[in-house]
Design a binder for these strands. Structure first.
Length: 109
DNA sequence: TACTTGACAAAAG
DNA sequence: CCTTTTGCCAAGT
């Protein structure tokens, strides 16, 4: 199951996310050049659980700053991880999302 | 080979 | 302002 270029690219970008920062699925998809595949990015995240090394998928949220995948982590693991990195989460939603937003197309340019 | 599903996003009502 | 619909792409069945 290797050579899934798309997934690999997604993992690479997610791993490049600085600690204490977050990004959105659409931002990653756009960085990869396939803006419309924002769903595929989330899909790849699901496979990130089996990816090596594991990617900080907890730093990836939807465009609303909502922890859409917190249930996939298993309980409040995602929130705990984010809080552990200095990111405050309230009601499954990231506070200061706009401030903590990390745009690969801009920062990683 | 074709249809369905999915951790999204943006627009329209 | 909130809810509903459409678009997009890749993987699994």
């Amino acid at each position: 199951m290797a050579n899934s270029n798309f997934y690999d690219e997604v993992y690479q970008v997610v791993r490049l996310i600085p600690k204490g920062r977050i990004t959105s699925y659409g931002a990653i998809a756009e960085y990869l050049g396939t803006k419309g595949s924002s769903r595929v990015v989330g899909y790849a995240m699901g496979a990130s659980g089996t990816a090596q090394p594991p990617v900080p998928a907890h730093r990836v949220v939807n465009r609303n700053g909502l922890l859409s995948g917190k249930f996939h982590f298993g309980g409040d693991t995602m929130e705990q991880l984010l809080e552990s990195e200095g990111i405050h989460v309230k009601d499954n939603q990231i506070q200061n999302f706009k401030e903590l937003f990390w745009n690969p197309s801009a920062e990683l340019l």
